[in-house]
């Protein structure tokens, strides 16, 4: 894998095909755990692990897996890996495991994982598939962290609450002071939808501007190469 395709994979995962902003996949965990940065980023990193290893496993086996039974095989691989991650969290990051609870096993049902295995790892070599898994996962981590940060800020007036579970000794940042009454809807489930909608709108504005600038630079007759993806 050369530098060019590595850059391509990174750009795809982090921005152009961002799982949350563009593909709108895996919204269930996105909305459920994004009540704070720490929760959101931890689950995101667990997803990165599962995506990297499942992409690697599927890409290595891709020539042996018949098309007809690929889905059961993929799910079997993803489920086994998720269970291993779940056990590992329980054993070595016990406090975090107690916080994330049901959402680690639910990584199996996250359609991002299956989507990348099916759309990318089943057709590409192991190395670039692993990079794709990591980059797609990191795109999710970034989105989850921003979403978690905004919701936490609106709802509680803090940032990084719960950081002491990951790094004992660190403490959360109280942005608006202890008297902040809390804009509750930020933490409640509707807040997740509103915040995500605002982020998607913002990203679409940026994408539209970038596409316009690009087509203007290429001259009026050139087709816009990088259309913003619709939220379909």
């Amino acid at each position: 894998m050369n530098l060019q395709s590595f850059r391509e994979a990174a750009w795809n995962g982090l921005w152009r095909q961002n799982t949350g902003l563009v593909q709108l996949l895996g919204l269930c965990p996105i909305l459920a755990v994004s009540t704070s940065i720490v929760n959101a980023a931890s689950l995101g990193l667990a997803t990165v692990m599962v995506m990297a290893v499942s992409n690697l496993a599927v890409a290595s086996l891709r020539n042996f897996i018949p098309y007809e039974i690929r889905i059961p095989v993929f799910i079997l691989i993803i489920a086994a890996l998720t269970t291993v991650v779940d056990l590992a969290f329980n054993a070595y990051f016990h406090d975090l495991y107690l916080v994330l609870g049901i959402f680690i096993p639910l990584i199996v049902t996250n359609c991002i994982v299956l989507a990348r295995v099916e759309a990318y790892a089943a057709k590409n070599d192991p190395v670039s598939s692993t990079v794709d898994g990591i980059m797609m996962g990191l795109g999710l981590v970034c989105l989850l962290s921003v979403l978690g940060g905004l919701r936490e800020l609106a709802g509680n007036g803090t940032l990084f609450s719960g950081i002491e579970m990951l790094f004992p000794g660190l403490s959360p940042i109280s942005v608006f002071g202890p008297d902040y009454p809390g804009f509750l809807i930020g933490i409640l489930p509707p807040g997740a939808f509103f915040t995500l909608a605002c982020l998607i709108a913002l990203s679409n504005v940026i994408r539209t501007r970038a596409a316009k600038r690009k087509s203007a630079a290429q001259g009026p007759m050139a087709p816009a190469a990088d259309q913003p993806a619709s939220a379909a």
């Binding site: 086996l61 042996f64 897996i65 018949p66 039974i69 059961p72 095989v73 079997l76 691989i77 489920a79 086994a80």
Partner: peptide
């Protein structure tokens, strides 16, 4: 194959 993958996963 399915059985084999299940065995490895198990």
């Amino acid at each position: 194959l399915l059985g084999g993958v299940a065995l490895v996963a198990g």
